[in-house]
Nucleic acid binder design. Structure first.
Length: 515
RNA sequence: GCCCCGUUCGUCUAGCUGGCCUAGGACGCAAGAUUUUCAUUCUUGAAAUCAGGGGUUCGAAUCCCCUACGGGGUACCA
């Protein structure tokens, strides 16, 4: 019988969610929805020493922002709960003991200090220590110790861990959905701890038990898990759950944009792009890490960018909505190698989506940005500015840097532009123009009338059109940038334009005399 | 060190069942057009001898082997 597709995203609440984790979740989501299955959120908080307050809330909020919805799990509920591993603590012990009984696992009484000492000894001989089939008999565990001794230690309440007992020289095969067939020999693998002395399972045990109990059909996770996957396969075998063992897909990692290694928290701060979906303040150090949301990225753009980082549809289409991605997604088209994050492409994606935002919405966003700068203008005015400059922006915050002169008259004039655009005698010519502009009656079509006048004035007096227009631009904008002069004149209106021209005449006139 | 995975333009990638590849697209870059400015937009261009070397084959980016390089793992972390 065909099983209903069920996948899970299982982060640890040890800090903010890394953008690579977001991609892993996205691929899980796309796969689940594409196949009409369930997508669940499980919190793997078995390491109490690394638990970070607020991380779980952060994770949930991140997906809310991105618009990725879980069908089951922490914060949603479901028939297979609880979905927080710390709340499932008691049930893992039974499974660990079951493995000991079956001979697939054993008690180990070595203290961390003892193991450290052994490692040091090996290191001194330039050898590597591994708790495995070759060394386990020389360590203190229920395999090497007599039955009476083990019972005595257990009764005394000695601290112990339960380790998996890898069989000797056995090839373990696994078929990865992305990488194909992978083979590893059990003799090379170490006897991983399954159950810790604090009564908590490790990832390996909890993961397999929960995936089985939650009827997970596909495990889609980061490549860092590939080396321990043979252990996971063996665990399914040991429990006798091979029939329902999920299929595995190990995703390539996200790499640093420059240099080597996987993308880390530091790279973001250093290279100026976020590594986290949302801004995060470390509860202990108070250190702030930037987030995509706060940096002005649209969730749709982040999703689209992430989806294409390591996957493609096989067509030349690059812009996809979440729903479209669901339609075309397939695990087979995920690439095998790591991908470097590309900031420029990320900006381009955001630009694409920003252009789809309505004038109305963009105006509202800009209004609140202006408010934070203590600037209040009518919505009509802001909307007319937005219409003129929106296409040159990648982010909402670019609206301001591309239109500040609409709200504040220039105090300074770009030096380069000054030399090039305000030639000898321009001050006098501008005075004449200013006076003439003053004669034109104000009104909605003032800009048009002003331009008509300028055209005529320029031809009648044999002036250079480029020079005149650019000088006016310099006076009004303070630079050589900006939209069409006619549009600027229309938006700013008669009084403001003339006042700026006069101000420029005065200021630049002084500058010229000083020279 | 050992184990596993990977390697096509600067970056993301197409190519996977060998010939349609003088290797395609996108970002970025350059030039031109439009905009009497800047940006947008459009057009064009530069950019990978397919990591290197051996095979197999009439024919290989595509299959096999070796080497190099990159990444991951090697915790009572996930």
């Amino acid at each position: 019988m065909e099983r209903r597709v069920r996948v899970r995203f299982a982060p640890s609440p040890t800090g903010p969610l890394h953008i690579g984790g977001v991609r892993t979740a996205l691929y899980n989501y796309l796969f689940a929805k594409k196949n009409g299955g369930d997508f669940l959120l499980r919190i793997e908080d078995t390491d109490r020493t690394r638990f970070v307050e607020g991380a779980e809330r952060y994770i949930i909020e991140s997906f809310e922002w991105l618009g990725i919805k879980f069908d089951e799990g922490v914060g949603i509920g479901g028939d297979y709960g609880p979905y927080r591993q710390s709340e499932r603590k008691d049930m893992y012990r039974k499974y660990a003991l079951e493995l000991v009984e079956k001979g697939w696992a054993y008690y180990a009484f070595d203290t961390p200090e003892e193991l450290d000492a052994v490692r040091k000894r090996y290191e001194a001989e330039k050898k590597n220590f591994q708790y495995d089939c070759k060394t386990r008999m020389s360590l203190r565990n229920s395999l090497s110790l007599s039955r009476q001794e083990v019972e005595r230690l257990l009764e005394e309440g000695r601290a112990y861990v339960i380790r998996f007992r890898f069989p000797e020289n056995e090839d373990i095969h696994l078929d990865d959905l992305i990488r194909g067939h992978v083979k590893m020999n059990s003799s090379l693998l170490d006897d991983k701890v399954l159950y810790k002395s604090d009564g908590m399972p490790t990832y390996h045990l909890a993961n397999i038990v929960d995936d089985h109990l939650m009827k997970i059909t596909h495990v889609i996770r980061g490549e860092e898990w590939l080396p321990s996957c043979p252990l996971h396969v063996m665990l399914y075998k040991a429990f006798g759950w091979e029939d329902t063992m999920p299929a595995f897909a190990h995703l390539p990692l996200l790499l640093k944009p420059e240099g080597n290694g996987k993308l880390s928290k530091r790279d973001g701060d250093r290279l100026g792009f976020p590594v986290f979906p949302l801004q995060w303040t470390d509860p202990k150090t108070k250190e702030v890490s930037s987030g995509y949301r706060e940096s002005g990225y649209l969730p749709e753009a982040v999703i689209n960018m992430l989806a294409l980082l390591g996957w493609n549809s096989g067509t030349e289409q690059e812009l996809f909505s979440l729903d479209e991605l669901v339609q075309v997604f397939s695990i087979e088209r995920i690439s095998k190698h790591g991908a470097k994050f590309d900031l420029e492409k990320a900006k381009w994606f955001n630009h694409q989506y920003l252009m789809k935002v309505s004038d109305e919405e963009l105006t509202d966003a800009f209004m609140s940005d202006l408010k934070s700068r203590n600037i209040e203008r009518s919505k009509d005015f802001v909307a007319s500015v937005v219409r003129l400059i929106r296409e040159r922006c990648n982010f909402v915050k670019d609206l301001w840097s591309n239109s500040d002169y609409f709200f504040v008259a220039p105090e300074e004039y770009a030096e380069k532009a000054l030399k090039k655009r305000w030639k000898d005698g321009m001050t006098e010519k501008m005075m004449v123009i200013s006076n003439n502009l003053q004669q034109i009656s104000d009104g909605k079509d003032w800009g048009q009338k002003a331009e008509d006048f300028l055209m005529k004035h320029i031809t009648d007096n044999g002036l250079n059109m480029g020079q005149v227009m650019n000088s006016i631009r310099l006076a009004v904008v303070g630079d050589t940038k900006g939209p069409n002069m006619l549009d600027i004149m229309n938006v700013l209106g008669k009084d403001e334009i003339i006042s700026r021209i006069n101000k420029a005449i005065e200021r630049i006139g002084i500058l010229c005399r000083e020279e």
